[in-house]
Every structure is written in C-alpha cells, then in structure tokens.
Design a protein around this nucleic acid. Structure first.
Lengths: 334, 334
DNA sequence: GCACTGAATCGAAGCGCTTCGACGACGAAT
DNA sequence: ATTCGTCGTCGAAGCGCTTCGATTCAGTGC
C-alpha cells in the first residue's frame, strides 16, 4: 500500500502539501495540485482510515454501528429493510456500517470505547429497554429506532402508530362502519416495543370518538391461528364489517382464511392493514394500507445520527406518519 | 476517553509497561501487573482501536467485511442466517463485522485499500462473478460463499448440492421409486450462482445410475405457480411417485397445493426438500429434508478467513454436506 | 570477587496521517 | 522604497499505540 509520503516523494512536494490537496483545507496552486493528483492516481494511493481518524482533530472514523435484533421473532423482512436503508444512507454520508447484534451486549461498549464507531443506530427499542442507561453513558451520539418510555436527552425515530390507527378507524367510520375489529401481533417483543399498544390506544380512542364498536384479538402468523382469530373477533362482535390488521406476517393467512370462508373484500368486509412496505402485495384479495415507512425510518435515523456526529442538531424525537392508501380494500358499510 | 498514558501515569509506570501488561508479550512482575490493571479498571481504559491497528506490526483492525446481497430476489431468511453466523463467529475470533452491500461495488476497494477491514466474506458468488478479478487484486484475504467457475487461488465455501441431490435420489430409489420429479427455483440469481445447476446435474446423474425416470420443473414462490408446476411435472411424467424440491420459498405452496389436491405425503407421494434450515418446519404435511447448513457455511467462512488473516492456511475450496433426515416424508413406492 | 545471565522496566522510534505555525515570494498599498 | 497582506508551501508536532533495543538489578557459577 502506498502511503502519503510515497505520494509526496513522487510528486516532489511535502507531506503536508499532499494532505492539503486531498482535504482542500488550504489553497494550493493549480500546477502542484495536478502533480499531486497525478501521483495519487499513479500510485493508487488511498489514505489509511485508521491513521486519518487518529490524526484528525474531529477524530472520526467514518463508521457507524447498527444494532439489529437477530432473535427468532424479529421480522427478517423488516430488519432487512432497515439494514438496507441504513447502509445506503450511511454511504451518502461517507460512512460505513458496522453490524452489531442485540445479543452482543458488550459490543455497544466495545465499539464506542475503542473508537471503532462514531455513533450508533439501535433498532427494536423496548419501552423499558435495559440498554438505555448504557447507551446514555456511552458518550457517543445514539439514535434509537423505537420509542422508550423516557426520551429525555435521547434521539428517537419511530412511526406514529397511534395516528395510523386513528387514520384507519376514521376512514372506516366515514364509510359508515360502526363495528370494527383490530388484529394485533401476539409476540412478546412486539409488546415490549410498545408500538402495538400505541396503535391499540389510537384505535380505541378514535373508535370512541366516532362511536364505533370494537373487538380486538391477537394472532400468530399461521393459517390455523388466523381462523381462530377471526372466530374470536366474530364471537366478540358478530356485526363486524371492517378490520384493521396490524400484523404483516399474519395478514396473508387472514386474507386466505377470509377467502376460504367466502368473505369477499370489500363487499362483505373492509380491511385496512398497518404494516411494512410490501406486506400487502400479492394477496389474493385487495386491502387498504397504512404503510409503515421502514426505509424512511432508517434513513431519518442515519441522517439524525450524522448530524449529531458532526456536532449539529440536538436530541429530538421524530414520529413519522404516512397516509392511508385505498386500493379496493374498503367499501361503504351496507 | 482515558489513554494509555493516563494509565501509565496513574500506575506510576511507563507507557510500554502498560502495553506489555495488556498484551502479555513480555514478562511483568506481579505487583506491577496488578497496579496497572487496577489503574485500567479505575480509569475504564479501552485501547483505541485505530491507534492499535496503526502501531501494531500485524496491522490488523479486527474488522472483517461482509458483502451481502440486498436485492429483491435474495432470500432474506437465508441472508439473515448467514449474517448471524458470520457475526457470532467473528466475535469468537475477536473481530467485528462491517456490512457492505453488493450494490456498493466500490466498497470492496474502499474498505480494503483504506485498511478498514482485514479481509472479506462475500456472499452470493455467481459462476462467472464479475467481482472475482477485483477481489483477487485486493491484496487482502477473501472467502467466497459460492462456487465460481475458476477457483484457482481462491478460498471458497459452499454446500455440495450435487451430492445432496444424489443422496435424495438414492434414498428414493432405494424405496422403489422409479419416477421422480425435481422442482427448482426460477429466479435468475439462483441460476447465476450455479448451485441449482449443480444440484440438477447430481439429480440427473444419480437418476440415470439408478434407472429412474425424471421430470424437472422450475417454480415461483406463489400458490398459483405451485399448482402450475405440479401440473407441468405430471404432464411430463404421469407416473411420478416422488419429488425432490430445491426451493425453500416455494415448498409451503407446493405442499399446500398437494394437500388441496388430496395428495397425501408420504402415501401418495414422497417428498424430499433440499433447503435452508427451518424451511420445512411448520408445514401441514411431513417432508424429508437434506438441510443446507447455512449457519455452518457462514461459520466455516469466517474460520477460513480468520486463518488466512493470521497468515495460516492457504486458499482452498470446502464443500460441506449434510445427511438426509427422514421425518415421514417418504415411503416405499407402492 | 567477577563476568554472565535473565527478569523487569524504560525510553524512543515510528505506524500514516492532520494540522499549526513559519517562511519566502510577490503584488498592493502607502 | 518600504510595509503589509496573501498565497503557496514546508517542517515539525502529535494523535494513541506497539515494539525494539537498552538499562538496571538481582542472582548464578566459577
């Protein structure tokens, strides 16, 4: 590997001149600039990332850490969407991504204390996440994806699940539906993350405001569970004419089950799904959706982190929202 | 952040003594050792990773790069299994993982040339992968997961798909099956990767050797495609009594379709799946499996990379295999 | 008693880079 | 003609660490 002094020698200038050509932090005459750049190209010189980080006043490594859940009941599709958005956005900010798993709890300390990373994006934050004190004590910028109970001094990005539910109920209520069911996930991590509860709160609030009767039921992502879930809802409210489904993995099974039972969407039942992009694609029956903008959340998280790393911006909570998209999944109540 | 000189001052020793206590590369008296370690604990000292890599003779950063496909038709489940295995194995080798996406083609050069990583694990290698010349010219250890046409001087890990197919056919032939179908994936990336072809070659070879009649058909991972695929196979060979399925995503649809058509496994049809771990779990009918040991492949890749980074080992190709596990998916031909 | 060994420690060099303070040269202003 | 400011460039310091002699101080053998 060529070093900066190889370049300096080859171009017949001093070390510092090469550095200034490359950083642009001082003016350099055009002929010198060209000679240096030619030497760089000739030697295929790339500055050593470690040395650069060591020497620079800002002390930045250009690497951000991404902490992902790799346990069983994390939705791999959603995690992958985050990963994709975070890595591509990081690249736009001249940063690379170091991957940490949630299980490697010592990793947070390790990569920040040893200055491997400039900051962290942490996925899958629980309402009472045990890592929060640790993260706060790291002395490095951190952005959480998720909404802990106490957000004082923390940067957080999340989707406004309560608003999404209110939007869905409002839409259905305006169509004349007066009895609406809610299907949510039954996995514990989803509940620890709190967003299921926030969504349900929004659902109930808007239903109360609109005078809508409700039924709620959790569901596992299997065909059998979907049938049981539907039966449970009907037992609670035989007059159900609409469903809000907040469970991307169970959605296909629910739609199939409805199809098998001869329930036509939207004629017999209106259905609104709240879930990650693509979750409602390729289903045998149409559903309306409020899309959880997973990629957007990852993008915003990196942008916030990047700002904080460069000293700009302060801790803030950003709740994203997205519109309900009708695609034939709902109809006026008959 | 405390530096090594803070520790030295606090312990009343020289810089180098602290370094030797921490690395164990020279003998240090017990009292001094203790004083230094106490100071380290007191100050919460963690050596700066960049400085360490810069100064050390080995020049290692303790970071390996992992190049993953993030495009649409990559199976997220499989990718995630690789990621999990690679990160956990890397940790056992004191390394962290930097994530690169396949799309970021300049990334390979960037992270190696700037000495961000000590080596690379590259997933999803195509038979004629355009990155191979680039990877060879990097001057850093690289382990490929997949099997390119030319493996000269390259470290590769893959599953022996041909052997898996021969195993499956042999198993079925011994049960008296004389007409066996093969279902494979139709996505182009699967074929570029070459393993589908290797599996098919093994399938045909063993079938010929055992005097078994065959039918082959590709399939998309949807319910409709599964039905079409089965119809296609029956059209080729109305007497089919067994199926080898090499397509984890289509497997559930195929099994459902068979169930709907009243085909009982294993009474009416024997079915062997070749696919990633967990792909055959939770199906409504039993299937036998030859498991593609995705996690194992990731583990072996990191182990090989780790050896090459520390100067040990030479380029080699490792083909893993795994046994056929019978779990009620096959029965003697009637 | 003396050179000799080995254990324990230190000082200094240097990894590859950034950055600060000089410094010479030159045109503008006085 | 002298001073001043700018521009372009250089040298040296230093980021935090590892590592290679060198040094000191027992302890050993003769």
């Amino acid at each position: 590997m060529a070093t900066i002094s190889d370049v300096a020698r080859s171009a017949g200038v001093s070390l510092s001149t090469v550095s200034y050509v490359l950083s642009g932090k001082r003016s350099i005459s055009e002929p010198t600039r060209t000679r240096v750049l030619d030497a760089v190209a000739l030697l295929g010189y790339r500055p050593n990332a470690g040395a650069r980080a060591l020497a620079s006043a800002s002390n930045r490594t250009g690497v951000i850490g991404l902490v992902v859940p790799l346990h069983e009941d994390a939705d791999v599709n959603v995690v992958m969407q985050f990963v994709r958005a975070v890595t591509t956005t990081a690249r736009r900010h001249e940063a690379d991504v170091l991957l940490l798993t949630q299980e490697d709890s010592a990793g947070l300390e390790r990569v920040t204390a040893t200055a491997l990373v400039d900051g962290l994006v942490v996925l899958d934050i629980a309402v009472d996440d045990p890592r929060i004190p640790l993260l706060a004590g790291l002395g490095r910028p951190v952005v959480l994806i998720g909404l802990p109970r106490e957000t004082q001094g923390l940067s957080c990005v999340d989707f406004d699940f309560a608003l999404a539910a209110r939007t869905a109920v409002d839409h259905l209520a305006r169509l004349g539906h007066t009895s609406i069911g809610l299907v949510s996930s039954s996995t514990s991590s989803v509940h620890q993350a709190g967003y299921a509860d926030r969504l349900q709160a929004g659902f109930l609030e808007q239903a109360a405001a609109a005078g809508v009767r409700v039924a709620t039921q959790s569901c596992d992502p299997t065909a059998a569970a979907a049938r049981t879930c539907l039966a449970g809802l009907r037992a609670q409210r035989p007059d159900l004419t609409a469903l809000v489904v907040h469970h991307e993995a169970a959605l296909p099974h629910l739609v199939s089950a409805l199809g098998e039972q001869g329930v036509r969407i939207p004629r017999d039942l209106s259905l609104v799904s709240v879930g990650a992009a693509g979750a409602a694609a390729g289903l045998p029956q149409p559903v309306d959706v409020v899309e959880v903008p997973v990629g957007e959340m990852g993008r915003v998280a990196v942008e916030m982190l990047s700002a904080r790393i460069s000293g700009a911006g302060t801790a803030e909570v950003r709740l994203l929202s997205s519109p309900l998209v009708t695609q034939g999944g709902s109809a006026p109540a008959s």
